[in-house]
Simulated scan of single mutants.
Amino acid sequence: MPSIRPPRPDDAEAMAWVHNTGWRETYSHILPERFYDDAALERRRQMWRRILAEPGERRLAVADSAGQVVGLAMAGPATADDPDRGTPARELELNVLYVRPGHHGSGAGQALLDAVLGTASAQLWVAEDNARARAFYARNGFHPDGARNDDEEFDGAEVRLVR
């Protein structure tokens, strides 16, 4: 199993790549290419550089296998910065959790989730039709609370899971 550690500033490039690849592999059937193309990768590079420079209240972790970032997770205080999503249901929100496909089933996803959430009550948003992710979160005590976000850009909906 990969080791879990806090990210370093020089991990921004690898984190952006894992994040972008995760979007491509998970959402290419429901989102246009602009969400995971080269321009999206560059936006994610900039985003991770900024976050790693000033993490604030965010909880961050990466999965490292032989010196290579193979997964990442980020959680922070739950906010309702998108009015369509409604009031936060929990104190913490899982914002990002991606593991490279070659490391699915390795325990990296579980270790990353544990690293950024522990046993805290939390919420997250997941594509309604992402059966793999929903099963993973259900094993970790998450269940739908009825909140739903339909987005015109997204061929489907996101549902909020809470624990």
Rank of each mutant, 00 (worst) to 15 (best):
S28E: 07
R100I: 14
T26Y: 01
W125M: 02
V96A: 15
R160T: 04
H19V: 04
D64V: 10
L97F: 08
A111Y: 07
D11I: 03
A115L: 10
A61T: 07
V62R: 01
E13G: 13
P88V: 08
P7G: 02
L41T: 05
A80K: 11
A120Q: 13
T79G: 11
E128S: 09
I51H: 12
P88N: 09
V62I: 09
R45D: 03
Y27T: 00
R44E: 04
R134C: 06
A133G: 07
T87H: 14
G56D: 07
Y137K: 00
H103M: 11
H104Q: 13
A66C: 11
G22A: 10
G141P: 00
L161W: 02
L97E: 03
H143N: 12
R100T: 15
N140V: 06
P55E: 09
L124D: 01
E153D: 15
A120L: 08
F35D: 06
H19W: 10
P83N: 09
D11W: 02
G76W: 04
H143Q: 15
A61N: 01
D151M: 13
G86N: 01
A61D: 03
R8Q: 14
H104P: 11
A61P: 03
L92H: 08
M15I: 07
V62D: 01
G86F: 03
G146M: 06
W23L: 08
A75T: 04
L52P: 03
A138W: 05
V62C: 07
W17V: 08
P55S: 03
G67C: 05
E57I: 10
T26M: 01
P6G: 02
W17E: 06
A66H: 15
E128M: 13
D150W: 10
H19P: 02
V162F: 04
L161Y: 04
V99Q: 02
S121P: 11
